[in-house]
Design a protein around this nucleic acid. Sequence first.
DNA 1: CGCCTGCTTGAGATCATTCAAATCGTGTGG
DNA 2: CCACACGATTTGAATGATCTCAAGCAGGCG
Lengths: 251, 251
Amino acid sequence: MATSNMSALSLFLDRLLRRSVLSAEEQGAILNLRSHAFQAEGRSDIVSPGQKVDHACLVVDGLVGRFDQMAADGRRQTTAFHLPGDMCDLHSVVAPVAGWGIEAIATSTVLHIPHRDLRALATSYPAIALAFWRDTTADASILGKWVSNVGRRNAPARTAHLVCEIGIRMEQAGLGERTRYTFAATQVQLADALGLTPVHVNRTLQALRADGLLRIEQRMVHVDDWDRLAVLAEFDPEYLLIEHLPEQRAA
Amino acid sequence: MATSNMSALSLFLDRLLRRSVLSAEEQGAILNLRSHAFQAEGRSDIVSPGQKVDHACLVVDGLVGRFDQMAADGRRQTTAFHLPGDMCDLHSVVAPVAGWGIEAIATSTVLHIPHRDLRALATSYPAIALAFWRDTTADASILGKWVSNVGRRNAPARTAHLVCEIGIRMEQAGLGERTRYTFAATQVQLADALGLTPVHVNRTLQALRADGLLRIEQRMVHVDDWDRLAVLAEFDPEYLLIEHLPEQRAA
DNA sequence: CGCCTGCTTGAGATCATTCAAATCGTGTGG
DNA sequence: CCACACGATTTGAATGATCTCAAGCAGGCG
């Protein structure tokens, strides 16, 4: 089990190493985590809202989203997209009762990793605890931008900002170029993420396409003019770049 | 310095202990943190966007907000309110370059605490590292709700939800009752938090008042009908209640 | 072919913004 | 005590953005 999932875990390790320094022993400990692979259909819930979980989910393949759901009429707000290599609810290690749900946007493969093991690792290796904390913080940083995106940008700028963000993250993760990457969300799912109506997302995408900024075809984003798109979005990628700490680099 | 700020630090310790179990030694280590008190005028920025900081800010008194600012026209989106006892940028310990800013909503007292010391504590005491991580996660949980609030609720429900959230948090922190607490934000600042226009906030508050749900008078929130307000807001306080972990309670 | 899902279109209603101005309260200086 | 300035709240009217509802279209698949 652990051996077959090694390469998937190394995706996660890569992500950690992008932000933190870990010793060979610490890296080995992460690669040897017990895990259990799991396949999820597109448009299915992996974790339902309010469910108590005893494992974290590492996205191996596909696209996964975190969402909050309104009790009254079931309308959803997606609060995060998770690409392969992301541990989509690492924070659940310290807060196992989720107020949110996790859904597979497209058909996806995820790895279940027991909280107990992750917590043991964090307790034994202070550097790993800090690395986990930093990883969670990176997600929180994205979440903060998501708030201002939904709260303060109109539909075209908001959509453009999301496309820019995912582009940079795909590129960082080595899964495509910022101007060309696969992104399997339907317009309905996009609407859930943008805090808009599917109809309005449709018209907005048409406008962006007509402006020569971007096209979404065959579940693939093509950015035709990155610079103008970034200007429209008021996109500054700084929030996606959490640097290594000086003393960590020195160590 | 440390002695005079002890009681302020104990506010923060209280907050940590609400979610995590810490030994006497660990508690002592937190109370003995070096710190430097600092007074901030209302409507002034404590940390400007993009500034690199080497200390975290513990709110002692007043009201503080985290915000994201648009480069083009300077309009702001507040992404979090921090009440006394909150360490408003604990995450900056692991991500010192902020994409956001911190502003004093009202005149406030904050304690500056060096990152170096907090990091040392997290490294020496695994339980403290986990406690810090959990504290950051609690803020992230609130942030997630903030996204769905701004993205999926109309102005009255959105405003109601914020009032409910702050009410519960004030109560948890022992700073008031959920139906009656001081809240020093002006309508302009409220608009920044709600992703609305000040004018629209004004009309929304009038509507809520006319419905007999709440009044804001003299910088004080009076909830006249909590139950109906919670229904309108579709408010479920679960996301604010991060429980102690079973193994922590046992230890 | 028939069905399903996702995408597209139209028209009207609703929500929220904009801009401009009036009002109110508080504190300050004359 | 009054005049004034300032920030905060309130109001009105017009505009614009987004939503709702309802229907039509296109492609993939059994």
